[in-house]
Amino acid sequence: MKLTQFALATILLPLAPITAAQVTMEIPKGIQLLVINGQDSGYSVFGFDHQPEIQLPDGTNQIAFRISKAVRESGSKKTKFKSVPILMRFSGKDTHLKLEVPNIRTLDEGHQFNTSPSISVKESGKQFPFVYDTMAIGFDLAPDFTREVEKYNQSQAIASIATLNTLPTPIAQAPESITKDVANSTTDTSTQITESNKTEMMLKHWFSQADEETKKQFLSWAVTNIK
């Protein structure tokens, strides 16, 4: 994900038309949305960007996500766990759904989940039909999940959608603190906020939300990849 794309999406998402949303899905904490109906969800490279719910159009929808949370590695030591990306497809109309995933507390439990992931979707407490699959990303440290979903859909696998490009744009709630910061900045007529300013603002926000180990890993990656 390019940070400039995320900065722009953060501004545009609240302006999306509400009339297109008919299916609401609750998203549990620890879930990082990656791609919604073929579009980048505006996820953070640090993984601290939880969206409590998303609104989707009636009909067939496809969501790519992963579990991203701090877990216990050994004793009291904690580390960041990111699960294998999961791609889910379902159909609904005028309904409220709830995504449920196991409460992973340790790194071992995370490894077990990656080996045999198990998720569910509920509608009024009852099981709601859906299909899901894992996505093979390989060793790419910064994969383009939108492109990976596109490639997956060309494979005609179980969770693929052939008509994905015709789906309306989903509505997602941008993190409130970021939306306010950008709104406050853009209302100052004496200052022209450039795209780089917005990117810097987003980067600083997500960096402040990360744990110390994640910050160190990011700084090491940044120094290695800076041009």
Rank of each mutant, 00 (worst) to 15 (best):
P85Q: 04
I86E: 11
S91T: 12
S91W: 03
G92V: 04
G92L: 07
T95P: 04
L97D: 02
K98V: 09
L99C: 05
V101Y: 00
N103T: 14
I104C: 04
I104H: 06
R105I: 15
T106P: 13
T106Q: 13
T106A: 09
D108P: 08
Q112L: 05
F113T: 02
N114E: 05
T115I: 14
T115W: 15
S118P: 08
S120C: 09
G125E: 11
K126L: 09
K126H: 12
Q127C: 15
P129C: 05
V131C: 03
V131I: 07
D133E: 02
T134F: 13
T134D: 08
F139H: 09
D140W: 00
F145T: 04
R147F: 12
E148G: 00
V149I: 01
N153R: 12
N153Q: 13
Q154K: 14
Q154C: 04
Q154L: 11
S155Y: 03
Q156N: 13
Q156V: 10
I158E: 06
I158G: 05
A162I: 04
L164D: 02
L164E: 02
N165R: 08
T166F: 13
T166L: 08
T166M: 10
L167E: 06
T169E: 05
A172P: 14
P175E: 01
I178P: 04
T179H: 06
V182Q: 15
V182T: 15
A183Y: 12
A183W: 08
A183G: 10
N184V: 10
S185E: 13
S185L: 14
T191Y: 10
Q192H: 12
Q192T: 15
Q192F: 15
T194I: 12
E195Q: 10
S196E: 13
N197E: 02
N197R: 00
T199G: 08
T199I: 07
M202H: 06
K204H: 06
